[in-house]
Nucleic acid binder design. Structure first.
Length: 767
DNA sequence: AATCCACTTGTTTTT
DNA sequence: CAAGTGGATT
């Protein structure tokens, strides 16, 4: 027996050494899931299995890197680096690059991120002259994503009567068509979106049995982390790959399934026994992370969910402190109180700052805590939110890289064809796009041979386009020689981006410039690492491939930084902290207002809360505010139902949840059903805010623009004296058009005659 | 063509 | 409140 097995308990050890055949490990929070996976891999290696025969799939790069590091510590880096370990997306994008030609792609295909996908969808909706009020980009994108995750191709979608019926009922009967065009446009651009990586892997394995067989034979051992979060596309890939050796080990916890919005299917874990009747089940029920109080509190919450695998999670750690509720009057006060509590614990009990996490349901909540901590000079780091790679200036530069690697990439190309400005305007680009779509080729195909197509573009603009083409061509040929960093540096300067940003001396401009510098530093670092790991210099394409699937969560580890972590609960999954603050635990926020109507969604929110609580080792603080700014308006909030679902014997101050206000504070007169949070109650007593404002206006007739209140445009007729908030006073000479097109010709005292569209003009009648 | 401004709109969670 | 849109202005 190898010595490192001594660090496992009996059930962990069993799960580690049972290497042959399918096995399912159900592991409660903090029960050592990752530990089992790492030791299992280390054990396999120690049994003489070659590293590259092992496939280990995780959900985040972070989890993958962490595991790699831990395994390297056990068996050495040289051995560990040959493991096939990574996220589903990164592993299968690698395989797809190898096999790209089989499915009609090039191995240098681009990966569209969410922004690219949505931009493309917007264009398609516009091209089909559909109403973007009905065909909402985000909804269409979500539906396409759903279809792909369930392996429904456009053809299958269009052929399915019930889908057609559904779309008709939702008044988006042309969705199937959009979906089809979307796929075609991605294809002609040599691009895949995130979901395509899984869909095309499935297509590859379905249509090319010999390829499937190759990988089936290759991967003798398959391990999957967070199995409860797999969707159908992922499930099927694993199932097919495991068919040959059946050495598949999946690890998961149904109580921590929080990604169903991304198509994750909790049934996958429940159905494991059907796919592999001979499977072996291991349950890891002892929580090593948290105090008994925390584990018990979390258990008391999760029993409110109907559907779950029976298990008994327990802790043998100290009983620990009870959970503390923090009640705040406003969201600002919540930030202040959380900051104070952290400061005190830091002073009194000498916790390091990195021992703290502030968690919330939505990214929008981060700002308050940032401000509160900044005021107190407490170091923090916000994770997630707007990713570094999604910033405009970064996306722009990356677009140059992408076009250099794959010039057919239309989304990248349209981003940069006129950035920095080089006189190729919107209408020109639109013309070219239309031609490209008409011929079903990429924009690059058009502009490299523009004379072949009949487009009415002036010669002087064609000259500019040709200059752009030459620029990109020079990048392409240079990129065959230069390494990633030199190439990136060259592009930054020759594209004009460097100059453009250097000239901008505004606050944002300087920060943009710094971001570009940071990206270049990142490429330098990447190049060094690549050289070290692979023994050869990386090209720009290598960098682009790696960057597409990386989020900034993965990049910056908090290693030695002594900072508080601020992040969503979703991104906190898999992490642990000594002290955890779960904030904004209010009805409509957590659980989200979008999930309260659907019992399934509500259960997922509850699991999310469960995940949040079980991140903590020592202390849990639950905070809520009684009012908070949402959508720019101050709204009343009430404590979340989840707070009351935790058995109060684990809470130090449960009375705060039931604190009743004096009767005369309640504004509950008419609708007892919706006492709390009914938005209607927050509206002014007068139906029309304008009436109220106008009264103020009339009190002070001095020309205060702040209080400018326009009159109903329909009342305006020729001959009136009117006032415009910018143009000043004038006389209406005549009215033309009807409804939305109603225009007024007005002679302004200072500016002379102007034609204004009444719908927008905002005029006040003087007499 | 580019910038500016007023207005609308919409917010869960992420690979 | 923010980011994004679409119209008007220079």
């Amino acid at each position: 027996m190898i010595d490192f097995l001594s660090k496992l308990n009996d059930s962990q050890k069993e799960a580690v050494i049972h290497t042959e055949g399918p096995c399912l490990v159900i592991a409660g929070a903090g029960a050592g899931k990752t530990r089992v996976l790492t030791y299992r891999i280390a054990y396999l290696l120690s049994q003489g299995i070659r590293a590259n025969k092992i496939l280990a799939l995780t959900f985040t790069n972070k989890a993958a890197n962490e595991m790699k590091e831990r395994i390297a510590n056990l068996v050495g880096f040289e051995n560990a680096k040959n493991l096939w370990m990574g996220t589903f997306h990164s592993i299968f994008s690698l395989i797809l690059r190898r096999e790209a030609d089989k499915i009609g792609y090039n191995s240098n295909y681009s990966i569209y991120d969410t922004i690219d996908s949505r931009n493309l969808i917007k264009k398609i909706i516009k091209d089909l002259t559909l109403d973007d009020k009905i065909y909402k980009t985000n909804e269409i994108h979500a539906r396409i994503s759903w279809a792909k995750n369930n392996l429904i191709t456009p053809q299958a979608y269009l052929a399915n009567v019930s889908f057609q019926k559904r779309d008709l009922a939702k008044q988006i009967e042309r969705f199937g068509e959009i979906y089809k065009i979307y796929c075609l446009r991605c294809f002609k651009s040599g691009a895949m979106d995130f979901d395509d990586l899984l869909l095309y892997t499935n297509i590859l394995f379905r249509d090319f049995p010999e390829i499937l067989e190759k990988y089936q034979n290759h991967f003798s051992y398959i391990l999957v982390d967070e199995y409860q979060d797999t969707n159908y596309a992922q499930y099927l890939i694993i199932k097919k790959l495991a068919q040959q050796h059946k050495n598949i080990c999946v690890v998961g916890d149904d109580a921590q399934s929080i990604y169903s919005f991304r198509g994750a299917n909790i049934e996958n874990i429940l159905n494991f026994k059907n796919d592999y009747p001979e499977y072996k089940l291991f349950k890891l029920e002892q929580n090593y992370r948290s105090t008994q109080n925390i584990v018990n509190a979390a258990n008391s919450l999760i029993t409110k969910n109907a559907k779950q695998i029976q298990k008994n999670i327990f802790s043998k750690n100290e009983t620990g402190n009870k959970i503390k509720i923090i009640k705040a009057l406003t969201d600002n006060e919540e930030g202040f109180l959380v900051g104070n509590t952290i400061f005190e614990l830091h002073q009194r009990e000498h916790y390091r700052y990195k021992d703290f996490a502030i968690l919330y349901r939505t990214n929008a909540q981060s700002r308050i805590f940032e401000e509160a901590l900044r005021k107190k000079n407490i170091p923090y780091k916000v994770y997630g939110g707007i990713s570094f790679y999604q910033r405009k200036e970064i996306k722009d530069l990356l677009a140059y890289f992408r076009v250099t690697v794959n010039p057919k990439d239309d989304e990248a190309l349209t981003r940069i064809i006129n950035y920095p400005a080089r006189g190729i305007g919107e209408s020109t680009v639109e013309k070219i796009e239309n031609i490209a779509n008409y011929h079903n080729v990429s924009i690059w195909d058009i502009i490299t041979d523009i004379k072949k197509y009949v487009i009415n573009i002036q010669d002087r603009i064609i000259l500019k386009i040709n200059n752009f083409v030459e620029l990109i061509k020079s990048f392409i040929s240079d990129s065959e020689q230069l390494d990633a960093f030199d190439m990136a540096f060259k592009i930054t300067s020759l594209s004009g981006i460097n100059k453009e940003l250097q000239e901008d001396k505004s606050h944002e401009g300087i920060s943009r410039y710094e971001n570009i510098e940071e990206l270049l530093n990142g490429i330098k670092e990447f190049s060094l690492n690549y050289l070290e790991e692979n023994g050869k210099k990386p090209f720009l394409s290598n960098f682009i491939e790696s960057v597409a699937l990386i989020t900034d969560m993965d990049n910056e580890k908090n290693k030695e930084d002594d900072k508080i972590s601020i992040m969503t609960i979703h991104s906190a999954k898999g992490l642990e902290f000594k002290n955890v603050f779960i904030t904004g635990i209010e009805e409509e926020l957590f659980p989200s207002y979008l999930s309260v109507t659907n019992p399934k969604d509500l259960e997922e929110e509850r699991r999310l809360f469960y995940v949040a609580i079980t991140r903590s080792e020592k202390n849990v603080f639950l905070s809520f505010a009684e009012s908070r700014y949402r959508w720019g308006k101050l709204t009343n909030c009430s404590p979340s139902r989840f707070l009351k679902e935790i058995d109060s014997k684990y809470i130090e101050n449960p009375e705060l949840l039931y604190d009743v206000k004096p009767a005369f504070f309640s504004n509950n007169f008419e609708s007892p059903k919706n006492v709390q949070n009914n938005f209607k109650l927050n509206k002014p007593l007068f139906n029309n805010e304008k009436i109220v404002k106008k009264q103020f206006n009339n009190l002070d007739s001095s020309n205060n623009l702040q209080n400018f209140v326009p009159d109903d445009p329909e009342k305006i007729v020729a001959g009136m004296q009117v006032e415009h908030n910018r143009f000043g006073k004038g006389e209406v000479l005549r009215i033309e058009g009807t409804d939305d097109n109603r225009k007024a010709l007005i002679n302004f005292q200072n500016l002379g005659q102007k034609q204004l569209l009444l719908k927008y003009a905002k005029l006040r009648i003087l007499k």
